[in-house]
Design a binder for these strands. Sequence first.
DNA 1: TTCGCTATGTATAACAA
DNA 2: TTTGTTATACATAGCGA
Lengths: 87, 87
Amino acid sequence: MGRNKLPMKRIENNTSRLVTFCKRRNGLIKKAYELSVLCDIDIALIMFSPSGRLNHFSCKRRTEDVLNRFVNLSDSERGRYLYTISI
Amino acid sequence: MGRNKLPMKRIENNTSRLVTFCKRRNGLIKKAYELSVLCDIDIALIMFSPSGRLNHFSCKRRTEDVLNRFVNLSDSERGRYLYTISI
DNA sequence: TTCGCTATGTATAACAA
DNA sequence: TTTGTTATACATAGCGA
């Protein structure tokens, strides 16, 4: 998106990485909010910023409550992983 | 986005709501993945589908590990809430 | 629930501040 | 770290299957 296409890898320039984080985080939260409202669902989103600070977002319920809903599921119910990407 | 602009409220038609969930969930996961890679950060995303099924996603670490990182923060550190929208 | 198509609405990269 | 501007790249609504 934007003026150029960004290669999908870590942005090495510190300033650029922080600016991109700031903007994309806001975009991601907006999308999460829209999905929650349009589809009437619980969402929790947890992010640790490049500087290590926590950023979290939730809709309809508190983040902690959504997490509890997650934690209280059995392993089999929790098994529906979409992706787990480890680098 | 798309052919028409959607009003920001619950989609009442059941089929439409499920189709929209399916598509936007995939888009949200893609965005979360990109943010994690570009900015080199931990992310966890938890969603309960309209049918009540869990969908979760994480990058770099397992969802459970990101949640633990969240849970282990003190209240003050956790205080940086961006938004909490209760309906 | 998911996939393909495609007209349109959005998000965002680069730059400046 | 966040905001504004603007040219582009992307996401997605509606429809058919």
